[in-house]
C-alpha cells in the first residue's frame, strides 16, 4: 500500500511542471557542488573555501578569459560561485537538518508525554519564538564572532521551534490512532513507540518544511553577510560576493557581473528548493487530497 502511495505521489510530482523545473535545477546544483574541485581547482587544497586573491586592486574587473565571471573585492567570482554552491548546500542542509532534529526531539517529547513536560517545553518554545528570527540570529552571531559556522549555530539555535510545534501537533493527532493505543496497551516502551510508530507518521510534513526552509536559510545567511555579520570576507559564499557588489551597484557597467552571477545562482538555488517544497506540500497537504 505504501508503495502505491509513493508511486502515485511520484507520478503526481512529475506531472507538475514547476516541480520538475525545481528538481532539474536542484540536480544541476548538486552536480556543480560535487564536481567543484574539477570545475574550479583550488589553489590551496587544504582551504578550498577561501577564494584565491586575483589582484591587489579593489576595483571590480569585468569578465575575461582568465576570470570568466569577473573579479570583485580582489576575488574571482567564478571560483566563488562554484564553491559557493557547496557552501549553500552546507548552510541549508546542516541548519535545516539539525534544527529539524532538535525540533523533532522537542516536539515528540512534548507531544507524546504531555503534562508538565509539554508545558515546560512549549513555554521554552514560546520564548524562542517571541524573538524575530533575523534579529535573534544577528545578536547571537555578533556574540559568537565572525564566520559561517557561527552564523549556522545562530540559525540553528533560533530555528527549531517551527518543527517542534508541527511535530507536537501531529503527534497529538497520531496518539489517538488505534495502533498507537494498541501498542501502548501492549506495554511497548515509550521511546520505541515514538520511534517506530509516531515519527514515521509525522515525518512527511517535516520534510516539506525542511525543503521550504532550505531556501530561506540561504537568504538569511546572505542577509547577515550583507549586514557585515556573515562569513569572513574572501569566503566562497554567494552572500559575501553579493555584499561586495553592494557599494558598486549604482554603476552598472562595473557591477553587473558581481550581482548577476552570484545573484542568479542564489535566486535559482532558493527557487529550486521552493518549487520542490511547494510541490511536495501540494502532494502531502491532506486538505488538497481527494
Amino acid at each position: 500500500m505504501l508503495r502505491d502511495e509513493i508511486k502515485k505521489n511520484t507520478k503526481k510530482f512529475f506531472k507538475n511542471p514547476t516541480a520538475v523545473l525545481g528538481l532539474f535545477l536542484l540536480v544541476f546544483f548538486i552536480i556543480i557542488a560535487l564536481f567543484a574541485p574539477l570545475i574550479a581547482p583550488p589553489k590551496d587544497p587544504n582551504n578550498p573555501y577561501r577564494i584565491p586573491i586575483a589582484t591587489w586592486s579593489l576595483e571590480p574587473k569585468p569578465p575575461s578569459p582568465e576570470h570568466p565571471f569577473g573579479v570583485i573585492g580582489q576575488r574571482d567570482i567564478f571560483y566563488g560561485v562554484i564553491w559557493g554552491t557547496r557552501t549553500a548546500f552546507r548552510i541549508g542542509l546542516i541548519v535545516a537538518g539539525i534544527s529539524a532534529i532538535i525540533g523533532i526531539i522537542m516536539g515528540s517529547l512534548s507531544g507524546y508525554f504531555g503534562g508538565w513536560i509539554d508545558e515546560v517545553l512549549m513555554r521554552i518554545t514560546d520564548i524562542f519564538m517571541s524573538l524575530p528570527f533575523l534579529v535573534a540570529a544577528m545578536v547571537l552571531t555578533t556574540v559568537l564572532g565572525k564566520g559561517l559556522d557561527k552564523v549556522m549555530i545562530a540559525m540553528i539555535v533560533f530555528g527549531w521551534m517551527g518543527t517542534a510545534r508541527l511535530i507536537r501537533g501531529n503527534i497529538l493527532q497520531v496518539k489517538e490512532e488505534q495502533y498507537v493505543l494498541a501498542a501502548k496497551a501492549l506495554g511497548v516502551r515509550d521511546s520505541l513507540i515514538i520511534l517506530k510508530h509516531v515519527i514515521p507518521n509525522t515525518i512527511f510534513p517535516v520534510i516539506v518544511q525542511v525543503s521550504m526552509r532550505m531556501g530561506s536559510l540561504v537568504i538569511t545567511a546572505a542577509a547577515l553577510s550583507f549586514l557585515g555579520l556573515g562569513a569572513e570576507p574572501g569566503y566562497a559564499d554567494w552572500g559575501t560576493l553579493l555584499s561586495y557588489s553592494r557599494n558598486w551597484l549604482t554603476q552598472f557597467d562595473k557591477a553587473w557581473f558581481s550581482i548577476v552571477y552570484p545573484g542568479v545562482a542564489m535566486v535559482l538555488f532558493v527557487l529550486a528548493w521552493n518549487l520542490v517544497g511547494d510541490a511536495l506540500r501540494d502532494i502531502f497537504d491532506p486538505r488538497l487530497r481527494g
Binding site: 514547476t18 552572500g239 553579493l242 551597484l249 535566486v267
Partner: peptide, 28 residues
C-alpha cells in the same frame, strides 16, 4: 504555473538585492 513561479521568484530574492535594484532603476 506562471503566477506561482513568478511569485516564488520574488520569495526567492534576497531583499537587499531587490531593494538595491529598485534604487538603481527608480532613483539613479
Amino acid at each position: 504555473h506562471f503566477l506561482r513561479v513568478f511569485a516564488i521568484i520574488g520569495w526567492s530574492f534576497p531583499d537587499f538585492v531587490f531593494g538595491l535594484f529598485m534604487i538603481l532603476i527608480f532613483y539613479t
